[in-house]
Each structure stands twice: as C-alpha cells, then as structure tokens.
C-alpha cells in the first residue's frame, strides 16, 4: 500500500458476542485515506457505519486486521495511548454537539487542550482563535444553553479543531439542525477542507454525503462502493 496515506485500514473485522449470538458488525473492511481528503461514509442504520466510525475515531479497536494512523498501529495501543490518539489526532463533531452544559463556549473548546496538558494561558488563547475561526468569538462566554443549535455545532467544531487534529470526524453533523443552518455548517466544513483539513463525514443521508469529494458506502458490514463524487454539491 501507499506510504503517504494518513489512515491505512486493512482487512479489519469487528465482532460482538451477545450471549450465543456472534454479530459481525464489520467484515474485511480496507480503506486508505490521504491527508487533506474530504470523504463521506454513508450507509443505512445497522450497516456497521457507526462501528466503523468508532474504530476510525479510536473509541474502539477492531477484532482483527490493522488500523494504521500515520503509520502507528492503533489496534495495538492501550487505553491511555488511545486516549492520547483521540486527543491529538481526532476531532469529533457529533450530531447532538456533546458540549458540557456547565462550561461556557471557550471552556468547552479549551477542554481537549487541558487533557493535553497545555498551560492555561496558551489554552485560552488557542481556544479563542478556534472560536474566531468558526466566527463565534463574541459568544465565547455563553453557555451552550444560551446558544442556538448552529452556534453550538460551531463551538463543537472549534473544539474539534483546537488541537489541530489529523482528521475531523463528523457524525451526522447536521442531523439536529434545520436545513438552512445545516447548509451553513456544511459551508464551514467546505472551508475547513479548503484550508487543508482532512474531513470524514459519517451520514445516512445522500444529500449530506454529496458535499464530500469521495463517497464510501457501507452495507452489511462491508464497503459496498468507494468512488469519487461526480455530482458534488458546491456551497455557494
């Protein structure tokens, strides 16, 4: 395989044992992702796409196969190293934002840096910059409950960006937003891609997948197709 791949997944499987039943959530999945790619992973619910996202996001490890991130075999890392991996390389964006309700915007954005051991002053400065990037600096002292859905998602994106991760991993990022706000968020992803960020969108909607340059479709635990998007939605 190619050496300059950011992510290199080869023949991974994930099996769950539920009593006597063995469920194969992923079967023999291989995928390579280059730095700077904008890719969607689509599939119906129960297709194994969430399992795949968990593995990509280092929240879970595959049962068999290899997952290399910048050449490091993630499947062999222990819990602390996985935590460090998530901290440095993965920027999560969730459907329901997953901000901590008691912290204000800038404190939420600072949190990954706190776990990385960045000193308070630098942390604050970088968090403010990340919020500026998503055009929310003026709201940085607001709690999530005082922000709109779109603004909350921007805070979440700022939190994902603040550590300069290898990938932005967005799980149904517009799922909880109205369509107009959703488009704004997709425009932001487009900009972030143009700035060189690697973006992976996880979605079950074709419409959202269409914003990406490369489309991967998962069905029944394996990759159904993996192709360039010829029909790309360009945000104006």
């Amino acid at each position: 395989m190619n050496d300059n791949l950011l992510i290199e997944i080869t023949h991974i499987t994930k099996r769950y044992e539920m009593g006597d039943n063995v469920v194969m959530a992923l079967q023999d999945v291989s995928l390579g992702i280059r730095e700077g790619e904008y890719l969607s992973i689509m599939g119906p619910s129960g297709s194994g796409k969430s399992t795949f996202m968990n593995i990509l996001g280092c929240l879970d490890t595959p049962s068999t196969g290899e997952y290399k991130f910048r050449g490091v075999d993630v499947s062999k890392l222990d819990d602390d190293d996985l935590s460090a991996m998530r901290n440095k390389e993965i920027g999560f964006v969730f459907q329901n934002f997953n901000l901590l309700p008691k912290l204000n915007a800038v404190q939420n954005v600072e949190l990954p840096l706190a776990y990385a051991g960045v000193p308070a002053a630098e942390r604050h400065e970088r968090a403010v910059r990340a919020l500026e990037r998503v055009k929310l600096a003026e709201r940085m002292h607001h709690k999530p409950s005082e922000l709109s859905g779109g603004q909350r998602q921007r805070v979440a994106i700022a939190r994902a960006l603040v550590t300069n991760p290898g990938i932005l991993l967005a799980d149904e990022p517009t799922g909880a937003l109205d369509s107009k706000t959703g488009v704004e968020i997709m425009r932001l992803f487009d900009e972030l891609h143009q700035e060189g960020n690697t973006i992976i969108l996880i979605t079950h909607e074709q419409e959202i997948a269409n914003y990406a340059i490369r489309n991967v479709y998962i069905k029944d635990g394996s990759i159904h197709y993996d192709r360039l998007n010829t029909n790309r939605t360009i945000v104006k």
């Binding site: 819990d79 602390d80 935590s83 901290n87 999560f92 997953n98 949190l111 990954p112 776990y115 550590t163």
Partner: peptide, 16 residues
C-alpha cells in the same frame, strides 16, 4: 455517563 463519554472522546485518560 454522557459527560464522561464526552471527556473520554476528546482525550481524557482513565486516570483523568
């Protein structure tokens, strides 16, 4: 639980 999940996702170790 949710808060713990969020903290873990953004890089908190077990020891944290």
């Amino acid at each position: 639980t949710r808060e713990i999940g969020i903290r873990r996702a953004i890089g908190a170790r077990k020891s944290d």
